[in-house]
Design a protein around this nucleic acid. Structure first.
Length: 595
RNA sequence: GGGGGCGUAGCUCAAUUUGGUUAGAGCGCCGGCCUGUCACGCCGGAGGUUGCGGGUUCGAGUCCCGUCGCUCCCGCCA
């Protein structure tokens, strides 16, 4: 018989009755009746009830049947009588009649309950992460994450012809993007490595190196402040890149990946491939964001043309001042109480809006404090454009275009929450395409890259030389699901001449580009193939599948919000000797100089 | 760096609105009883500088100021 176990704690069934078995696991719960004692023994797989009869010599042998102690029981598998079967347990038709017991390890009094997976302070959970990870919820989410990764490797690697690579962890600081984590070099005092924010340049170099399809479950490091859905420090991307690929080729691969991946882990409906393609400008107009939640059946409209000459001063002034009026039509809410609408107005004001006007249609006509300022023709045209009828409503946001779009989008998502449209059992994917390559920096008035400086402009060199830079679109795209940005990607700019031209428009001279991206430019000059890719966030995928909102709930050992490891104590001070080797000197706190 | 919310027993929370007796409950812990439970049950017990410091008051868990911590958001995240 095996030293520790013949079966795991989820394995024994009625067919095993009469067999001798040995089980090891944690004490999940104990029901001590004075005479007979029931021990729920748990391992990663499940729970089996062990019965200890009073005549066993170990019955009083351990002082405490302390939960989370590690025990090994040997005994006979016996059938439970019909009235004592536990239908909530996979092993509930049997129990182990313990003949021998061995205490494999004791357990101190717990800081929080393992058996009862209820709320407690997150930093306490992080300090005792090994206990937290034993709890049902987190334990299952970490197992889910593992199964998702295995499935991604199978789909991309085995079925779609991708090759998995590793790329360096010690690499170069990137001139753009987030703050880098720096690693001092001992051999080159005063110089630093940086941890990669993403393997972007390496995956492009692999394409130029003649590999066809790259993927990696890639660690990414960014020294930015935390959010609920954003880990401080490190996270993982499903990073992929394809040679000789058009945007549609990338879409086809990603659509296959998600169309196969999601149904493996959820019964919820997944929007069928091909996913909807929504141009950036259309997304900003209809949904007021470039990460729309398409479960909400509300489409924003521009109605500025109706108000240039209207009697409604507030709207007329905005339109004549170059602003816009956006309408948000919502069906079936005209009978909501006044407080519903007041609350929405307050919501808009909190987010910087001047207000939120609305019209309510009823059998008798239009009800609204502002209806008297609208002509009958205008009211009818508004109704007609959104095909509204009795019981329907329309909200209005009037402001400068960017702000109006954003506010309307936030109101749309908020309505989605209020009206229960967002918890439907489905995943709605879409692509946002046709991002502008450049944008105007409102502070400096200069032209900046809007997304990624390495994206290929649509129309190539001709577009860069002929068009107003702000009109140039990039082969850039985002994958969005249920209002969550899953991923950004692009067809890369593989031509050094086009790359230099694009950088020139953004105000970078050739010498600067050579200095900052010399390695990549050198590679481009030796026959770089056209290529492109994308990098969906692994944790976001698992979060959506697990139905949780916090990235730390799908990460085994996350840093806390202050970027500390409370279990092992990182970051920590290091020996003076280590600093000397690196030729580093600490500036005492409060005496920061320079700047 | 900025804003909102929260800090009461080992854990989750009540008492704070309107300052007023000895700060309570559930779980956990300790002791006792209990032979069919599965969130076992029953009896008893221990456990508190109400985050910390100061102030107002006859009196502060409660009000005020400061500070520290946690949390969510903004900035930031090509």
């Amino acid at each position: 018989m095996h030293r520790y176990r013949t079966h795991n704690c989820a394995e024994l069934r009625k067919t095993n009755v009469g067999e001798e078995a040995r089980l090891s696991g944690w004490v999940h719960r104990v029901r001590d009746h004075g005479g007979i004692i029931f021990v729920d023994l748990r391992d990663s797989h499940g729970i089996t009830q062990v019965v200890v009869h009073p005549e066993r010599e170990f019955h009083g042998g351990i002082e405490h049947w302390r939960v989370e102690s590690v025990l090994c029981f040997t005994g006979m598998v016996v059938a439970r009588s019909p009235e004592t079967v536990n239908p909530r347990l996979a092993t509930g038709e049997i129990e182990l009649d313990a003949r021998e017991m061995e205490l494999l390890n004791d357990c101190q009094v717990l800081p929080f309950s393992v058996a009862q997976d209820d709320d407690c302070d997150e930093n306490l959970r992080l300090r005792y992460r090994f206990l937290d990870l034993r709890r049902e919820g987190l334990h299952q989410r970490i197992l889910l994450r593992s199964r998702v990764i295995r499935s991604i490797r199978r789909i991309l690697g085995d079925d779609l012809g991708f090759t998995e690579f590793q790329t360096p962890i010690l690499t170069n600081s990137s001139p753009e993007g987030a703050r880098d984590f720096l690693v001092p070099s001992r051999l080159h005092p005063g110089k630093f490595y940086a941890l990669p924010q993403a393997p972007q340049l390496f995956k492009q170099l692999l394409m130029i190196s003649g590999f066809d399809r790259y993927f990696q479950i890639a660690p990414c490091f960014r020294d930015e402040d935390a959010r609920a859905d954003r880990s401080p420090g490190e996270f993982y991307q499903v990073d992929l890149e394809m040679a000789y690929a058009t945007q549609e080729d990338v879409f086809a691969v990603v659509e296959q990946l998600f169309s196969r991946l999601f149904p493996e882990f959820t019964d919820k409906a997944v929007s069928p491939a091909p996913f909807r393609r929504i141009p950036y400008r259309e997304a900003m107009l209809k949904y007021g964001t470039d990460k729309p939640d398409l479960r909400i059946p509300i489409e924003i409209q521009d109605v500025s043309d109706l108000f240039g000459d209207s009697d409604f001063n507030a709207f007329r002034q905005v339109v004549r001042g170059g602003g816009v009026v956006r309408a948000i039509p919502v069906r079936g809410i005209a009978d909501r109480p006044r407080s519903f609408f007041d609350q929405l107005i307050e919501f808009t004001r909190e987010r910087g809006g001047k207000g939120l006007a609305y019209l309510l249609w009823s059998e008798g006509g239009v009800k609204s404090p502002i209806a008297k300022f609208f002509s009958q023709e205008t009211l009818e045209e508004l109704r007609r454009r959104s095909d509204l009828g009795a019981g329907d409503a329309m909200f209005f946001v009037a402001d400068q275009e960017n702000r109006a779009a954003r506010l309307a989008g936030e109101v749309r998502h908020h309505l989605g929450d209020l009206l229960g449209m967002r918890d439907g059992d489905r995943f709605e994917f879409c692509w946002i395409v046709d991002y502008p390559l450049f944008e105007l920096n409102e502070e400096t008035g200069k032209i900046d890259f809007s997304h990624n400086p390495f994206s290929l402009p649509q129309g190539g060199m001709e577009a860069l030389t002929e068009l107003n830079p702000l009109e140039v679109l990039g082969w850039q795209y985002d994958l969005v699901c249920n209002g969550v940005e899953f991923s950004s990607g692009a067809i890369r700019n593989h031509r050094p001449d086009i790359m230099l031209k694009a950088f020139a428009i953004a105000g970078y001279g050739e010498a600067v580009v050579e200095e900052k991206f010399g390695g990549l430019l050198r590679a481009f000059r030796f026959g770089a193939p056209p290529h492109g890719g994308i990098a969906p966030g692994l944790e976001r995928i698992v979060m959506l599948l697990a139905g949780c909102r916090n990235i730390r709930e799908v990460t085994a050992f996350p840093l806390n919000q202050n970027a500390q490891d409370l279990l092992l104590g990182a970051p920590s001070q290091v020996e003076e000797r280590q600093l000397r080797e690196l030729r580093l000197k600490l500036v005492p706190p409060g005496k920061r100089t320079g700047g």
